[in-house]
Each structure stands twice: as structure tokens, then as C-alpha cells.
């Protein structure tokens, strides 16, 4: 366990699926050789296959203190970084339509907005994902080179590019498949929680750019930070797949709206458009209590009361949404 722990909370009720976060991350960190297919931040439609497809069903993580097996996802599962044949179409006079190549098999939000059906009602929501900077990282345990370490000062999990030999045990071990292999470099790489930005007092790129203003950042152990309040005080946010044993430090406010048509005052727990079973699958059975709390706050606010939790979740300004701990800012600009 590290001395401090940076954490992120994402309010799934506010995500637009715009992928601005994905692009912010991509432009900043994965615009190099070999990184075309990888998205350290991705936003996927749920229910859906996810990226890499079926990542939530293939294994990894811990069970009874033991790492669990998992295959490596393939490039077909991630989706190749395809190119379009504009040249042929636009300059060489070929009549063929503009087509991607290699033929797409999957992608960062492959089944966008498809969702699922609950009776006659369609439902879906977006799930933005980054590395969870876990308290017990399975990736770290699996690396025979000890190339992965958890920074003591802020709990960020990083992968030392000098030590990595590209063995990919970490990718198999991560139950969230948030480490990627760069074959050109022969090394694995992952989200670094924008630590060079945090050290300068700037919040993560995906957070800064999010037009939905749904990402909250701070130290989990700092009582003044919004993540501390959302996770530990209001207990309004939960980690994804807690049973995989890594203790993630990215938390989600579960989607608890909308109700079915014509059921405006009904609880999601009574007559949900979003099947509760699916939320339990993602966030564990505690999601029921969290939704109960969120609905109570919403009801109170609708009756004209003031909800501190909802005010926080609205996140009007940067100061509400993130607190970069002043002691951890190393470079004063």
C-alpha cells in the first residue's frame, strides 16, 4: 500500500460518449510507433463487447490470493489501427468506395449505442475506462522483471520501460486488460494517470477535456478531495468488478436513470429500464445501496431541499471536481 493514493470518480449518469477523453489521451500519450491500436483511455457502450472485446469475461485478477489465468487478447479483439484508401478513391480515380484496411474486426467503442433490450425498452450507457491504479495490482505481481511498481507517494502504477522485456504476463494478469503491448518497441505500456501533469499541478488530460464534467480527481486519503467525499463520505461511487480482487482506485457513480416510459416517479429498483442484474454484474451487490442513497438525494432535491452530494456531482467548477494535493506538486510553474 502506498503512502497516498490518487483516485478518480466518474459519474456514469453524465457521460456523453463523446470520446474527447480518449482523444485527449491518445494525442498526449499514444501517438508513437506501435501504439496506433491502443487506447489507455477508452469509452465503451454497456452492455456491449467492450475493448478489447470480451475483456470482462476472459479472466485475470485474484482469487483466494492467487493470480487467475487469462489468454492474451488478439489484435482482432482490440481492432487494428486501420487506414482508409483515400488515395485510390480521390487521386487514382478508382471507383471503389473508401474502405478501411485491414478490415475492421473490433474497435474502441465497436458496438456504439447498440445496448440491450429490456422488454420493449432499449437501454445503454457509456463506461469510460482507464487503468485503475489498483491497490493490489495483479499486473505488478505477475511481472517477473519487477518492471511494474506502485509509486509510494501517490499510488500511481507505472511500468518501467527500461526493465520491461515484453513478456506480457502483466496483460494476462490485469482483469481490466488495461496494459497494451507495443510490438514495435517490444515492450508493454499503460496509463500513467498523467503523473507528469499532476506533478506540475495540472489535472489528467482526460479529466481536463471532459465536456460532461463527470471526472473527479484527488487523493482518496485527503478529506478535502472530491473523491474522498464521493467514495468514503457519501459512499456514492463503486469500483468496477470488485470481486477481481485488485481493489481499483477508479470509482463509478452508477447510472440510476432513466426509468421506464411512464414511470417517472418510480425507483430504478422497482421498475428499472436498466436491469439491476447488469449493474450488479459490473459493480457488485452494493450497487443497490448506492442507488438507494442517490435516489433519496435526488428526491430530496426535487422537493426543494439542498443535496450536498448532488451539488458535488454537478461539479460546476474545477475546484469542485479536482484537488491536486499541493504537497505532491513538484514543479511550480
Amino acid at each position: 500500500m502506498s503512502k497516498h493514493q490518487y483516485a478518480m470518480v466518474m459519474d456514469l449518469n453524465k457521460c456523453l460518449g463523446c470520446q474527447t477523453c480518449t482523444i485527449a489521451c491518445k494525442k498526449l500519450w499514444t501517438d508513437r510507433d506501435g501504439t496506433g491500436y491502443m487506447y489507455w483511455n477508452n469509452v465503451e457502450t454497456r452492455p456491449g463487447m467492450g475493448y478489447p472485446r470480451q475483456w470482462d469475461r476472459i479472466g485475470g485478477g485474484w482469487k483466494n490470493g492467487q493470480l487467475q489465468p487469462s489468454p492474451l487478447p488478439t489484435m482482432d479483439d482490440y481492432g487494428h489501427a486501420w487506414e482508409f484508401n483515400y488515395e485510390q478513391r480521390l487521386y487514382e480515380g478508382k471507383k471503389k468506395p473508401v474502405m478501411p484496411s485491414p478490415a475492421p474486426t473490433s474497435g474502441v467503442n465497436w458496438d456504439e449505442d447498440v445496448g440491450g433490450m429490456n422488454g420493449e425498452e432499449n437501454y445503454y450507457f457509456y463506461l469510460p475506462r482507464i487503468c485503475n491504479h489498483c491497490t493490489y495490482p495483479a499486473c505488478l505481481e505477475a511481472c517477473p522483471r519487477k518492471a511494474i511498481y506502485k509509486r509510494d507517494e501517490d499510488g500511481i502504477v507505472v511500468l518501467d520501460q527500461e526493465r520491461c522485456q515484453g513478456y506480457r504476463y502483466c496483460i494476462k494478469a490485469c482483469p481490466y486488460k488495461k496494459i497494451y503491448y507495443n510490438e514495435v518497441a517490444g515492450k508493454s505500456e499503460k496509463c500513467i494517470f498523467c503523473y507528469p501533469r499532476l506533478e506540475k499541478g495540472e489535472v489528467n488530460a482526460c479529466v481536463a477535456q471532459c465536456p460532461g464534467r463527470l471526472r473527479f480527481v484527488g487523493l482518496l486519503d485527503d478529506p478535502e478531495s472530491p473523491v474522498h467525499k464521493l467514495v468514503l463520505v457519501h459512499r456514492a461511487a463503486l469500483p468496477l468488478f470488485p470481486e477481481r480482487g485488485t481493489q481499483p482506485n477508479v470509482f463509478y457513480v452508477p447510472p440510476f436513470n432513466p426509468p421506464k416510459r411512464g414511470n417517472y416517479d418510480k425507483s430504478i429498483l422497482e421498475d428499472s429500464r436498466l436491469p439491476l442484474d447488469y449493474l450488479i454484474y459490473l459493480f457488485g451487490s452494493e450497487v443497490r445501496d448506492v442507488i438507494t442513497r442517490l435516489e433519496a438525494e435526488l428526491k430530496a432535491a426535487q422537493r426543494g431541499g439542498r443535496s450536498e452530494l448532488l451539488q458535488l456531482l454537478i461539479g460546476r467548477d474545477a475546484a469542485t471536481r479536482y484537488r491536486i494535493h499541493p504537497e505532491l506538486v513538484q514543479i511550480k510553474l
Partner: peptide
């Protein structure tokens, strides 16, 4: 440097 190139080298296979 990759930032000066429009097309970057792809990862052909990860497994």
C-alpha cells in the same frame, strides 16, 4: 521522430 510522420508504424500482432 514519430511526431513528424503522419503514418506511424503499427503493432501487427500483440500475441
Amino acid at each position: 521522430p514519430p511526431e513528424t510522420r503522419f503514418l506511424k508504424l503499427p503493432t501487427e500482432a500483440d500475441d
